[in-house]
Each structure stands twice: as C-alpha cells, then as structure tokens.
Design a protein around this nucleic acid. Structure first.
Lengths: 164, 164
DNA sequence: GCACTCCGTTTGCAATTGCTAGCACTCGGA
DNA sequence: TCCGAGTGCTAGCAATTGCAAACGGAGTGC
C-alpha cells in the first residue's frame, strides 16, 4: 500500500478546500488556525497535530476520520474481519473482559468443530436442522456472570441495543 | 466535565495499560516511544500528537479510533460495535451462540458504562476480594460453560497478549 | 500613478513535543 | 549488608509546531 506520505495530507486538504471554493485564509479562520500555518500544511512543510487536523476537518465540513486516514493516523479502516480482532480492538472492554469473551468464543468454536467431526463420523444431523438439540439457555452464563457484571438477565430488557 | 479533558486521555491509557498488566516501560517499548514521555502523557503533563497516540494504540492493541475519541479528536459518533458486527458475521457460530456472546458483550459494556459514570477513578464497584487483587477468573464462566460447550478449561489461551 | 483589498507565502520567534541521561525507590538473592 | 534488576519520575536539551508580522503579486477604483 502506498505509504501515507506527509505531503499527501496537505494535497488532500488543499484539494478539498479548492473544491469547496474557499480561500486559504477563509479556511484558516473557519478552522481556527493561522493562515501561514495552513499554507505550510497544505504544501507539506509541516506535519499538523491531530488537534489541528480535527479543526481543519471541521472547517472543511468533512469527517475527521477521513483526514486521519489520509494522514496515515488510522489504519485504513480495518474491517472487523474476525470476532477476536474486534474484541481486542474494543477499547471499552477491560483486559479481563476481553479474555472472557475470547475464551467463550473459542470454546464455541471448538464445540462447533467437534460437532463437525461428529457429523462426518456419525452422519449426525447438524444442530440447526432442528430445535430439539437445545443446549442449556444462556441464562446459565448470565447467572455466572452476575458476580462479575451487572447484567440485566432476562428481567427487564428494556435496555435496547441501539445507541445514539 | 463531559468534555474530554486533556488529562482523561492519559488516565485512559494508564488504565488500559494496567489492565493489560504491562509496565510503563513495556508499553513504551511496544509503542516505540520513550518511557519518560509515556509517563508524562499518562499523567496529563503532555499532549501527545496523533502519531504518538496511534503508536500507543498499537502497543495497547486497541483501536486508534477509540483513543482519538478519548482524546476528543473524533466526535463521539460511536458506530455500532465492531464486536457485535463480527459476531453476527461469524458463520461458525450458531444463532444461540451468537446471542450468548452478544448478551455477555453488552452486559460488559453496560458494566463499564456504569463504572464510568460512577467514578472514573477506581474500577472496583463491587466484590472486594481481599489481598488478592484478582477478580474472579474466567474459569467461572468456563465452568458454567461446561454443560454447554466442550471447553478446554485448563487450556491456556493460546493467544498471548505479548508478541515478538 | 496611487491607494485599497484580497490572495498565498516567507520570516523570525515563543511554546511545545519527544528524546537521552540520570534520579529515587522496591524487591529478591548472595 | 550490598548488588542487580525492576518500577516510575525529574532534568535538560534538540527538534518541531504554530503563531504574528511582514512581503510580493493580482485585481479594482480614483
């Protein structure tokens, strides 16, 4: 992948600014930075801090993330390819919580694997073919979770998952 | 208060580092920054550039975006959790397993949220276990998991948090 | 020609980042 | 006891950021 060279962020900003048809000074004022500095940024002579970058993004009315990606400050929006990577990347979890989730996930994977082998041996129907294969309900987990996390077991699940 | 004050990013980094049980010097080495500087960042004496922030995020194995949000460099428009997306996309899981993982994940998230609102200082709302500063180990979960999944409880998690 | 306004740029300078070297402290072993 | 390895922190410095002031050029009106 092309290295995010320092100049590219400047070119990108200048490009966006010109597309918006505003002058350097206007953008500088809107972003709250000095015009000389913005000029130097656009020409790749200076490497702006994230704070300045953020202000410029606001002045340009574009997403900060796009600018950070251009600046090479965010790995090009890595898709959450697998569960473990996503868990690892989730900064809202504590290390221990991460480990618990990963443990459970891996045990699930092992279970599926075992079933898969069984299937090939005994030609057993897959578990999703019928609901009669019901394993114990998640309540067991949530019960075990209780000392650990304040979980709304099955009582009032009024907390919806959506957010914002 | 609700504003992302400058010091909070340092507290957040220190918190994540301590939860990961690595020393300041270890994280500094992993992130490629000097230990004194990381120390100052954690104490809120310095405002790290986005580049440094990015390296620290890598050292902590968390997403750069989460760190930028903490630093107030990205509007907290939190997209739906990547973890849930990844779980939903995992074809190896049964629907029930998916639901269990999502339930646990969300309960963790709620717990963190509650802690955060309660006080950003100590992260031990309940359950004082005495001299041993270890909260209950994941074994509890895995024990509860036993009837459900064929889990290798003693099996160490092969994913180690350190890496050469 | 002259004055005025806008454009982007160059020139110094204070403030800050981020580093190396070194300090003080704790723990375990000879 | 001292020694070595580990922890985090302070002091001082080079390099960089980000700014105010000033510059040359283009356009407009008198």
């Amino acid at each position: 992948m092309a290295l995010p060279k320092v100049g590219s962020i400047g070119e990108y900003i200048r490009d966006q600014r010109q597309q918006a048809k505003i002058s350097l000074r206007q953008l500088a004022a809107a972003a709250g930075v000095s015009n000389p500095y913005l000029s130097q940024i656009e020409r790749g002579l200076r490497k702006p801090s994230a704070e300045i970058l953020n202000q410029i993004a606001k002045g340009l009315r574009i997403s900060s993330q796009a600018l950070y990606v251009q600046a090479g400050l965010i790995e090009d929006r890595e898709p959450p390819s697998d569960v473990i990577t996503a868990i690892r990347a989730d900064a809202h979890l504590s290390e221990r919580q991460r480990q618990v989730l990963i443990d459970i996930y891996e045990s699930f994977r092992k279970e599926s694997q075992a079933e898969d082998e069984q299937t090939s041996q005994n030609a057993r129907p897959r578990h999703d073919s019928g609901p009669d294969d019901e394993p114990p309900l998640p309540e067991e987990f949530l019960a075990a979770l209780e000392p650990y996390a304040a979980t709304s077991r099955n009582g009032d699940v009024t907390q919806e998952t959506k957010e914002g």
